[in-house]
Design a protein around this nucleic acid. Structure first.
Lengths: 192, 192
DNA sequence: CCAGGTTACATACCTTTGGTATGGAAGTGA
DNA sequence: TCACTTCCATACCAAAGGTATGTAACCTGG
């Protein structure tokens, strides 16, 4: 059976990314070996090192995929709401719900900053999740105010991440979601 | 020269903790080897493994020291202000200023959650930094309100950590401090 | 169609490093 | 003084990140 190079490469990288997401998400970055990821994907280390610049590079690729999925989910949720405030509220809910995914929490919230560095992580997020959040908050921000929108977005984002971790830790996330979401919306200036 | 066992142990652990803080803070957890820490402290691995249960255990001890120092600084800052709101404000400033220490940022904000796990980190912080923050916010919290104080503290803490990272990343932290602090105080309900 | 070159991946190997086992030196208590 | 414990160094093991090399699959110009 004759496949083109692009097909081979694409299939291999996709399998590696999927296996890496599963193992990085379940066991964490440090406890996951390249050999294990390659074995899970049905190949050996050589393939991984051929397509990615190293363990951290593979992790970074997985991280970016998570960011893309989050940004898409946020934009979809916001697009369904015509009112800016309602759209921002819906985005909050969507973010918190996606924090219930253990893979997302481990890869994006826990290991990401440590492995990739804070600046790298925020740079990637500014192209995805933080970009959508900023767009939602820009509408509600009156430019004559004294506050700094960038700082406000970033602090709100930190609070949201903490809310996501807190929510996932609770005994009954479904029941805890409203109260956590209420506090998050309050911090975003959506209160009352 | 005859030293008691407690003196030997205490001096050794103190040297190890100091060397570990320096290397963990400068190079990060993953890039720091136990051999390097022991060499920096003027001894070998054996000493480290005798006094600490492993690399993560040593890191945890360093983390706790950082937390103790932060909590002490916060309490000192708050005690100097009779007004509860002013005390909380002063605590914010103190927290942000201590975030300018690269060792603190790397150990507590970046590597801590990844190495120790989120729940362990927050449990330690609830005995130190978060305890002081909660005490400060309890005074301003009217119990008849609908909000959840625990969630509010935690989200505010997440925002503060983000503010600290953002502040340290800025070109001129001294100049950026007021604007970041203003946004942080706004999130804490101290605005206006 | 086919030969040279490139891409994709496997295998073998090196090095670092976390952790353990063992041995000896320093301190302690009777 | 003599057993016993604590403290720390040294020697060793196994796992894992990374590299070098070999080989098979694809591509391209003639």
């Amino acid at each position: 059976m004759r496949r083109t190079q692009a097909e081979r490469s694409g299939a291999t990288t996709a399998q590696l990314l999927d296996a890496a997401r599963e193992l990085f998400g379940r066991d964490g970055y440090a406890a996951t070996s390249i050999d294990a990821v390659a074995a899970e994907a049905g190949m050996t280390k050589g393939a991984a090192y051929h397509h990615f610049p190293g363990k951290a590079g593979l992790f970074r690729a997985v991280f970016v995929v998570q960011q893309e999925r989050m940004a898409a989910a946020l934009e979809a949720a916001a697009a369904a709401e015509p009112d800016p405030r309602a759209a921002l509220r819906a985005g909050c809910l969507t973010f918190l719900e996606r924090c219930l995914d253990p893979d997302f929490r481990r890869i994006v919230l826990l290991d990401g900053p440590s492995v990739l560095g804070w600046e790298t992580v925020r740079a990637i997020e500014y192209a995805h999740t933080l970009r959508v959040l900023r767009a939602g908050m820009t509408v509600l921000h009156e430019p004559d105010g004294d506050g700094d929108l960038t700082a406000r977005c970033q602090l709100a984002f930190g609070a949201l991440c903490e809310a996501g971790m807190m929510l996932a830790r609770s005994d009954d996330p479904a029941r805890a979601l409203p109260v956590v979401a209420a506090e998050a919306e309050r911090l975003l200036g959506l209160g009352r």
